[in-house]
Design a protein around this nucleic acid. Structure first.
Lengths: 244, 244
DNA sequence: AAGTGGTCTAGACCACGGT
DNA sequence: CCGTGGTCTAGACCACTTA
C-alpha cells in the first residue's frame, strides 16, 4: 500500500483503513457483485502487500457494517438483500405479541411524475426531473396496516417500466434489476392524524393516530436512491428499537 | 484461564470471550465502578495468563457495547452516564431542523405505589410490592413536548425518598446514587390519541396524535430497573433512527 | 521519559465445509 | 484432504498523554 512516511505524517490513516477503502471501492464499482465471493484473506494480503491480520481487521469492520458476510470454511461474500436482511435490518414493525413477519404488498399505483421543488432538492435534481412514484398498501393476513408512498429518482433506475410487476422486497429488486444496493437508511418518526386517503386505505376514521415513518435510503457511495413515507396503524403492532 | 481441553470440546468458548466474561463480572460486582480506570492491557493479560492481543479483542468488544471507553495514552475506563451518553445514546428526539438538545424536566409527582398485577409481572415482583412512580413533563424552552411516566422497583433503589429533588439525567442519578447502571433499553413506539391528562400537560386537544414511546431499561446483568412511557408531541420534533 | 492504547507483522494452530 | 475463516501468541513499533 502507498505508505510513504512523509504523507503518513500529514494525513495519517491506518493501513487497515486503506485496505478497507480499496475493498469498498471494488464493491462500489461492481467488481464484486452481491453474493459474489471475495478472494481469501491470504490472496488479498498478498495482492495489497500487507499482512493477513491487517486484511482481517478491514474485513471485520466491513462485517460490522454488513457490507460482507463471512462463513467459516466457505469464504467471504458480498452481502445480499435476502428475506432475512429485509426482516431484521430494514423492517422494524413487530406485532405486540412479539411475532415478526413481513407484510404482503398490494400495489395501488406506479407512475412517472415530474419532481416538484422539494423532491428535486432532496434528490439533488432539477425541478421537473423524472421521479417514479409508487403507492402501495401492506397487509398482514387481510388486515391493512401500512399505507406506503415511495419516490425514486428515475435516472438511477434506467429502463424502469411502471407497468412491470413489483415484488414485496423492493431492495432485493433494486439490487438485482438495477445494481443498486441500499446499505443504510435514516428514519424519522412522527405521530400524525389519518387523512381521507389513508383512512380509506387502512379502514380507520379520519383523524385516527398513525405512525408516520419517513425513510431516506442510501447506497454505499452515499447517493440517496429512495424516499419513503409509511403510515402505520399501531393498534396491534409497534415499531421496535434497541438503545445501547 | 480455565482451558481444560476436555471441556473445551464440549462447550467451546474462545479465550477472548472468557476474558470478556471475567472483566464483565468485575463490572457487575462493582470492583470497577463507573469512571474507574481498568488495569492496562499488559496487566490484565499477565493476571489472566493470556496474551495482550486476546485481552485487546475482549476490550474491543466491550467498547462496541459501550461498557468501557478507551483513550490512547490514558487508559481504559468504565463507561459513565454523562450528558453525551444521555443525548446521543438514550434520547432519540430531534428538532426537525436537525438541532438536538436535551429538554428540561418539570417533575409533577413522585409517589410510592403498590404494584398492580401487570407491573408486578413486568418487574418479577409479587402483587402489591412497592414501586416508585414518577410523572414529569419535559420542555424545550417554555414549550412542553413530552409527558413522561416512570416506574421503578423500589427494592432496587434502597433509601429512595420521594421528596428528594430529581435531576434531569435520571440514568446518571441511578448510577451515582444507587450504583445502578443502565446499559441497554428496548423501546416500542406507537401513535396514540392524547387523553385528557396529556392534552392538558402538553397544551393540545384531546385526541391529538402523540408518539408513545414505551421503554424498558436493563442493567448489565439483565435486570429490568425502569419502565417508562413517554408521550411526545411531534409537530416540530421527530424520533430519529438509523438502519444499517 | 515513561506508560498507555493503537497498529502491524509473522507464524502456529483450531474449527468448519466441501472434495 | 485441502482451503477457508477464527483464534492465539509474541514482539516490534507508532501515537498520544502525563509527568
Amino acid at each position: 500500500m502507498s505508505q510513504l512516511p512523509e504523507i503518513a505524517q500529514a494525513l495519517y490513516r491506518p493501513l487497515y483503513a486503506q485496505v478497507r477503502e480499496a475493498l469498498v471501492r471494488r464493491l462500489i464499482d461492481g467488481t464484486w457483485g452481491p453474493g459474489a465471493a471475495l478472494p481469501s484473506e491470504i490472496q488479498i494480503a498478498a495482492e495489497l502487500g500487507v499482512s493477513q491480520g491487517t486484511v482481517r481487521k478491514a474485513l471485520d469492520e466491513m462485517v460490522a457494517d454488513r457490507l460482507v458476510v463471512r462463513r467459516q470454511g466457505r469464504g467471504t461474500f458480498v452481502a445480499e438483500h435476502d428475506a432475512n436482511r429485509a426482516l431484521f435490518h430494514f423492517f422494524r414493525i413487530t406485532a405486540d405479541d412479539g411475532v415478526k413477519q413481513l407484510p404482503d404488498s398490494a400495489v395501488i399505483s406506479v407512475k412517472s411524475v415530474p419532481a416538484d421543488k422539494g423532491s428535486a432538492a432532496l434528490f439533488s435534481l432539477v425541478e421537473g426531473a423524472e421521479l417514479i412514484d409508487i403507492t402501495r398498501v401492506r397487509l398482514l393476513g387481510a388486515a391493512p396496516i401500512i399505507s406506503e408512498h415511495i419516490s425514486l429518482p428515475a435516472d438511477a433506475f434506467p429502463g424502469f417500466d411502471p407497468a412491470e410487476p413489483l415484488p414485496n422486497n423492493l431492495y432485493a429488486f433494486y439490487e438485482t434489476r438495477f445494481q443498486i444496493t441500499v446499505t443504510r437508511a435514516e428514519e424519522s418518526l412522527k405521530a400524525v392524524a389519518a387523512g381521507p386517503v389513508e383512512a380509506q386505505q387502512l379502514g380507520v376514521a379520519q383523524g385516527h393516530p398513525l405512525l408516520a415513518i419517513d425513510r431516506r435510503a442510501y447506497t454505499l457511495d452515499g447517493r440517496l436512491v429512495e424516499a419513503r413515507l409509511s403510515l402505520c396503524r399501531t393498534e396491534t403492532h409497534h415499531y421496535a428499537n434497541v438503545l445501547g
